[in-house]
Computed example of a mutant assay.
Amino acid sequence: MELLGLHHVSILTGKAEKNYEFFTKILGMRLVKKTVNQDNTESYHLFYADAEGNPGTEVTFFDIPGLGHSYRGTTDISTVSLRVKTTDSLFFWEKRFEQFGINYDPIQKRAGRDTLAFRDFEGTRLILTADNGESGVKAGIPWKREDIPLEHSIIGLGPVTLTVSIAEPTIGILTEVMGFRYVGSYPSLEGDHPDIQVYATGEGGSGAEVHIEPRPDLPRARIGRGGVHHVAFRVPNEEEYNQWAQRLKQYRIASSGKVERYYFKALYFREPNGILFELSTDTPGFAMDEPMETMGQKLALPPFLEPKRSEIEARLRPLELI
């Protein structure tokens, strides 16, 4: 029983229209599912991914108009990485960010990889990380856009950084419960702080890493627009999902219990520093209710919400994604 890598990250946005423009028209990702937050059906839930909506490539957003700012600190998924093929791709993206006025930093090394950090319009801290032929979890399939060459397209999720006040409890959950292994460390790029520690699961590589940043000097984060709500990890199938549910019980870790999301099955729990983790199945996927060719073009609802479609649509604000 082994987690395969990162499944998705879910982030908060205060303006879904502008969010859609940024992630599809600037970053070139595909909107593979336009649906609702199943826990609050008055809110949209948008899923961006590779060309086929493969697990390990998904960045999702809950739309909450009027949401306040995020404030950086601990108990925070502080950065989210997106994979590209090579360092040459980072040079392409530097020029593209200049073209669109995107705030970015110089190319820097993180965990031995060339990376390019940037921010979206709500301050979400994102990083492009170059694979450069590295072995590990397989990348996704790029979504074709005329203005972004396929060789430079985003091809999946890279490492997430967890900023915590004390690293050891989080590391304990990752290694003792979730089966992650230590693979190295690298210096903090933000001054004289402890090294950032790198843990991996499955086949390893960029798509299977969690980076732990100890920052006892920071206050607790306050999540708002641009803040990361949770990170999910890949469970290959329902059989192992059931085993993970049992494992959390054995370790007396409080969890949501089994949650049916239709496109995948989920388990939610908080690690000791308070960051929300999710375990999500790779199956059945996003082509359950829409043809692959037209995914994301209409409001999709799982079968258990479909009888309430008229009521749900009446309560949703108009959302024009052009």
Rank of each mutant, 00 (worst) to 15 (best):
T86N: 03
S188T: 07
A49S: 15
T170G: 12
R125F: 06
A16H: 06
G202H: 04
T75M: 14
D131R: 14
G140V: 09
E190N: 11
K109L: 13
H229W: 01
L299G: 06
R72E: 02
L162M: 02
T13K: 12
R110M: 15
E42K: 15
G179S: 09
Y20P: 10
I223K: 14
V235P: 04
P303A: 05
F22P: 03
E134T: 10
M292Y: 01
P106E: 00
I11N: 08
M178L: 15
A130M: 04
T35A: 09
I223S: 12
E240S: 13
G191P: 06
R317M: 01
E98I: 02
D289H: 15
P302Y: 05
G14E: 10
H45F: 14
P219A: 02
H7K: 03
D39A: 10
P149Y: 08
Q108W: 09
E176I: 01
L31Q: 03
T41W: 13
I166K: 15
F118K: 08
L3T: 02
G5A: 09
P291F: 08
G274W: 01
L174I: 07
L31F: 08
G73L: 10
G133S: 07
T161V: 14
D88Y: 01
L150N: 01
H211V: 05
L126M: 08
T294E: 03
R317D: 00
A208N: 07
G56V: 06
L116P: 08
L162C: 03
A167N: 10
L126K: 10
M29S: 05
I171V: 15
L305M: 12
D50P: 12
P159S: 06
G112I: 11
R145C: 04
K18W: 05
T294S: 14
I173F: 13
L189F: 12
V198Y: 04
E58C: 15
R309K: 13
S10H: 02
S43H: 04
A130S: 10
P55V: 03
E278F: 06
L299V: 12
Q38F: 14
V36A: 09
I77Q: 06
L174Q: 05
G5D: 00
K144A: 05
A49I: 05
D147H: 14
E134Q: 10
T86M: 07
R113D: 00
I77F: 15
E176T: 05
P284I: 08
T161M: 08
G28L: 06
E98L: 11
V164K: 04
F286P: 10
G204V: 07
G184I: 01
F269I: 10
M295D: 05
T124C: 13
D147N: 15
M1C: 14
S310K: 13
M288G: 03
S165R: 15
S185K: 10
I26G: 03
D147M: 08
A49L: 04
T35P: 12
Q108K: 12
G204S: 05
S310W: 01
Y48F: 15
T163F: 03
F91K: 13
H7V: 02
G133V: 03
